[in-house]
Simulated assay, not measured.
Amino acid sequence: MDDRGDRIRVAHVLRSLEFGGAEKLVLELAMHQKESGEIAPDLICMRSLGPLSHDAEQHGLKPVLAGMHGIRYVSAIVRLMRIFSRRRPDVVHTHNFVSHVHAAPAAKLLGIPVIHTKHGKHVASFSRFPWLRRYLYNLSWRVAAVSGDTGSSLREKAGLDPSIIEVVYNGINVARYAAGSKREARKKLAVDEGVYLMGSVSRLDPVKDHRTMLEAFKEVAAERDDCLFMIIGDGPERERIKYSIGGLGLEGKVVMPGFIDDIPAVLPALDLFLQPSIEEGLSLTILEAAASRIPIIATPVGGTPEIIVDGVTGILVEARNAVALAAAMNRFLEDPDHFRKLANNAKQRIEELFSLEKMVSSYHAMYRAAIDERVKA
């Protein structure tokens, strides 16, 4: 029995609900939509459910597994058409290109408008068939880019019509991160209050460039014995990072607690947040650190400069430059009060541009406009 009434029915289609920035964002969006009472969201996973599906179920969402692994392209489209016919969404909202390639044609054949969100900067190559990539993107009523930089990539690299691209910034629950306690966070992480704790929170992936972070911290730690570095997260680079820690002689000075589920509870433990990525879409962890009033040093890649205005809301340094990163870290140690002022500015910017409420409202308006246009047609 369908109990969704007159609410807008939205089918979010994504690869899985594994731990990841985009997956976390989609889940947060769907939960907030459900709580609002105005939208009835579905979560449809293409390949696997993943651990975040348990969080979804705790909030009254039951993810649907489409089971696309190992089946032919046309069969996948037919399977999604059957799911859409049963669930009867008013809008299909695809997240990243893997899900869009299958779900957009299925929705289009059923006359359902498609909203597509491009979460990262990387644009699927389709080097032999660029027209096919452009065709698939253009099945969307709108393509939401999570940053202005991502929108530029879609225009310049994918050849999309600018009229269908709309920037919708990622949003977070600012109050949840602003409420954290530094003392309680340090207790959870078993970190003494008398040390400067620097660190990062991310998937341990090559694009996050942990090697440069460690090389920079080595320079800082050579002159200071009151600093500790923490790398929170897990991923394919874990063993390589541990090897680098040993090779740089940083044992005992760098801590790797692994994946931590409750980031809002531990993030306030940090005195300085670093994100020297070589590629980004729009980093959720930078948003979270800013909402927690933690000073930030990052690199001017992807949408990061749209969050971190150099010298105003944080510090930007050249990517892959350990010397510049170490210099910025030392500037923090010399004048932490100045960096805290930047952190306060960053929190204000997050509240104005990157709140969960603002993101949800933007998508709601997009859904309504797509439905209205379909009705008029």
Rank of each mutant, 00 (worst) to 15 (best):
G148A: 14
Q275I: 14
M31E: 12
R238G: 06
G281C: 14
G281L: 13
M198H: 12
E237P: 09
G67D: 07
Y73N: 05
Q33F: 08
Y135D: 02
I39P: 02
H122C: 08
K218Q: 08
V312C: 14
D310S: 07
P305H: 05
H338P: 00
F259M: 11
D55S: 14
N138T: 15
V312W: 10
H32Q: 09
R128C: 02
A22L: 13
Q58N: 12
A326V: 09
I112K: 06
L333A: 13
I245V: 11
R320F: 04
V98A: 10
L132V: 10
A124S: 07
G246V: 01
E239C: 01
K34G: 06
A76C: 09
D55A: 09
V207L: 12
K341E: 08
A76I: 02
G60A: 07
G159C: 02
L197D: 06
L14Y: 13
I232L: 15
L228A: 04
K62V: 11
I39C: 03
A298G: 04
S292Y: 10
I165N: 03
I232C: 09
G148T: 13
R340A: 13
P236L: 11
L80A: 04
T299C: 02
V195P: 02
S362E: 15
I172C: 11
K376V: 15
G60Y: 15
D205V: 03
A107Q: 01
L110W: 13
C227E: 05
G21L: 12
R134P: 00
Y243I: 00
D234E: 08
G311P: 04
M46W: 06
Y73K: 00
D6E: 10
I278P: 01
A326D: 05
K358N: 06
K242C: 01
S283W: 11
Y367M: 06
A185F: 01
I112Y: 13
A377W: 03
I350W: 10
K187D: 15
D205I: 11
E57C: 13
V174F: 05
L27I: 10
P206T: 15
G111I: 10
D149I: 10
R374D: 07
L27K: 15
P130D: 14
K347R: 15
A56P: 13
P300E: 10
P41F: 11
A269V: 08
A40P: 04
A106E: 01
L61P: 09
M31V: 12
Q58P: 00
A289F: 07
S75A: 12
H69S: 04
A327Y: 11
L17V: 07
I241Y: 06
T299G: 02
R349D: 06
I371N: 00
G281P: 14
L160T: 08
L228H: 05
S125I: 00
S277D: 00
I308G: 12
E373F: 01
E373C: 01
R47E: 14
I231T: 10
S292M: 05
A324L: 12
Y243F: 00
W141E: 06
D271Q: 09
A324E: 14
S355K: 10
V101F: 14
I315S: 00
H364D: 09
F129P: 00
I297N: 04
S152R: 15
D234T: 13
H338W: 03
K108V: 06
D271E: 11
R9A: 09
P113M: 10
S202E: 14
I77Q: 03
A377F: 00
D261N: 13
L29P: 05
A185Q: 05
H54I: 05
F19A: 12
